[in-house]
């Protein structure tokens, strides 16, 4: 555990909690892509199957349980509790265009051809593109609430910090995982455009951040 890894995890946790609280307090999931949230729930479920087979640390187990729990709670709020506020017409990204190629890639390129490893690899690849329905929705409506941009910023920052964590681990532990690094790079790049807008436009107009 190094400082980048820890701040990355905390940034990820902050993003998840910001989104849950935003929906809960405003009693609305307007502007939030339910499809992205389902993808994240799938990501956590397929990656954390090792909860059933092995114990790594109390920190590891509790964070995994919190992430999974929050992901399903978010999906529940969007599709059940506040379903009336869900903007399905604007959430029109075709997720099969992500899930099918990512599934194929996980079967082709993985560390070990076993069910657990393929599902782990699938979750890594899927996470890297899971935010696309959300970004697509924002570009379609042309705006995002400030709190939604904070959520996206924390979520993007998390993987960027993980990149620094992997550089650290490579130098100090000789640890190198090309699958995670490649997917993490793709994931971070997808947020770059948003990072730029968040920093440049976020300060001037506190109400809303427009995306092209």
């Amino acid at each position: 555990m190094n400082v980048f890894r820890l701040t990355g995890d905390l940034s990820h946790l902050a993003a998840i909690i910001i989104l849950l609280l935003k929906i809960w307090k405003s009693r609305s999931c307007a502007g939030i892509s339910g499809k992205s949230q389902i993808l994240f729930a799938v990501v956590f479920t397929t990656r954390y199957l090792d909860l059933l087979t092995s114990f790594i640390s109390l920190y590891n187990t509790s964070m995994k349980l919190i992430y999974i729990g929050c992901a399903y709670a978010t999906v529940y709020l969007i599709y059940v509790k506040f379903r009336a506020t869900y903007d399905g017409n604007h959430d029109s990204f075709r997720v099969e265009f992500l899930v099918v190629p990512v599934g194929g890639l996980a079967v082709l390129i993985n560390h070990n051809f076993s069910l657990m490893e393929i599902l782990w690899t699938f979750s890594i690849y899927l996470e890297s593109v899971a935010i696309l329905p959300q970004l697509f929705m924002i570009s379609k409506t042309g705006e995002a609430e400030t709190i939604t941009t904070h959520y996206l910023f924390c979520l993007g920052l998390y993987r960027a910090l993980y990149l620094l964590n992997w550089i650290w681990r490579y130098y100090f532990e000789g640890f190198l995982d090309m699958i995670a690094i490649f997917a993490g790079l793709v994931q971070t790049v997808l947020y770059c455009d948003f990072f730029y807008l968040y920093v440049t436009k976020g300060g001037k107009d506190r109400k809303k951040v427009m995306l092209p």
Partner: peptide, 10 residues
């Protein structure tokens, strides 16, 4: 069972 090191990460 033996878990790969990378599974330590979230």
């Amino acid at each position: 069972s033996q878990v790969p090191l990378r599974h330590d990460e979230l």
